[in-house]
């Protein structure tokens, strides 16, 4: 393989990796706080993409505005899902909320089929994102530059919120100990809602960029990226934002590189992540950067 090819693959890998990372953050934040695998997160990702499409084609919004509106609406959807389907189950056995999230996942997916139809839709992409740039022998899709950079900026923003603001402090407190936080006067439900809002906004951003990168909309488009991003979060160490980013990037790079170097395995592309998951759970369940969760005897 030539160097030029390798660089192209690397850009593709970084793009895919940062898209996974953005979704993985939502999983890891929710799991860190509620110990809940939010199965519906992949559908939130899908909704983000559809909302932009609606904004542009039905409301004739300019791209920029459509993206902002879509992210905001998706974010609110995430908060709503928590309010309706998870919050009533805070004191129930943990698996109940998990089953509830599976229900929400199927509900949103099929609602999308009802509203948008199951037929895949083509996404019209602005030309400047797809006109190939040629540098020497390397041919680069501008999107594969824009996506990692934008993702990086979003992640910086998130880290700022988590580590430099009061609600961020609340999030970190709740993830350490939800009961004590409540007693200390942290508005637990509001902080959790905020967590869902932020996680969903990032998933929406990822969904929108995903729809630009792989220009097709489908109600089931969130399922596989959702699973993989969750695996990325486990790989990085569930509960850790930096871990989710790292896990997402590594998973994206691995996926692209394995397919690039071992094309015969391309058919197994969707199985890598699951094999990886089982291996991590066996070898190091706390992931790369995860802290050990309390273990009871």
């Amino acid at each position: 393989m030539s160097m030029a090819m390798f660089i192209q693959h690397l850009f593709n890998a970084l793009t895919l990796g940062s898209l996974y990372a953005l979704i993985a953050i939502g999983y890891t934040m929710v799991y860190g706080i509620l110990r809940l695998i939010n199965f519906a997160h992949g559908e939130i990702f899908m909704l983000g993409a559809y909302f932009v499409f609606w904004g542009v084609t039905l409301l004739h919004l300019p791209w920029f505005l459509a993206v902002i509106v879509a992210i905001a609406v998706t974010s609110l959807t995430g908060v709503l899902v928590d309010r309706v389907a998870y919050r009533p189950l805070r004191d129930a056995p943990r698996i109940s909320a998990l089953i509830s999230s599976i229900g929400v996942s199927f509900f949103l997916q099929n609602l999308a089929i009802v509203v948008f139809s199951a037929i895949p839709r083509e996404v019209q992409r602005p030309g400047w994102l797809v006109d190939i740039i040629v540098v020497g022998k390397v041919r680069i899709l501008p999107l594969t530059l824009v996506v990692p950079v934008l993702s990086f900026l979003l992640m910086l923003g998130l880290l700022f919120i988590v580590y430099k603001t009061k609600p961020g402090l609340g999030m970190r407190a709740i993830s350490k100990d939800i009961e004590t936080s409540r007693l200390m006067g942290v508005p637990v439900n509001r902080i959790i809602a905020l967590t869902f809002g932020i996680g969903s906004a990032l998933a929406a951003a990822s969904g929108i960029m995903w729809a630009l990168r792989y220009p097709q909309l489908q109600p089931v488009m969130g399922v596989i990226p959702g699973f993989k991003a969750f695996i990325a979060a486990v790989f990085g160490g569930i509960g850790s934002i930096q871990g989710a980013v790292l896990g997402g990037l590594i998973l994206g790079i691995m996926e692209i590189m394995i397919v690039a170097f071992l094309p015969t395995l391309a058919g197994y592309r969707d199985a890598f992540a699951f094999v990886l998951l089982i291996i991590i759970l066996l070898v190091k369940p706390t992931g790369l950067l995860g802290e050990k969760l309390e273990d009871k005897v």
């Binding site: 009533p88 089953i99 509830s100 929400v104 199927f106 509900f107 099929n110 109600p219």
Partner: peptide, 20 residues
């Protein structure tokens, strides 16, 4: 199309939320 699973998943949500 899809309505069947919409109803069905709503039913599951109702069970898990109101009659666990």
């Amino acid at each position: 199309p899809g309505m069947r699973m919409v109803v069905f998943s709503l039913a599951l949500l109702f069970i898990i939320l109101f009659r666990r």
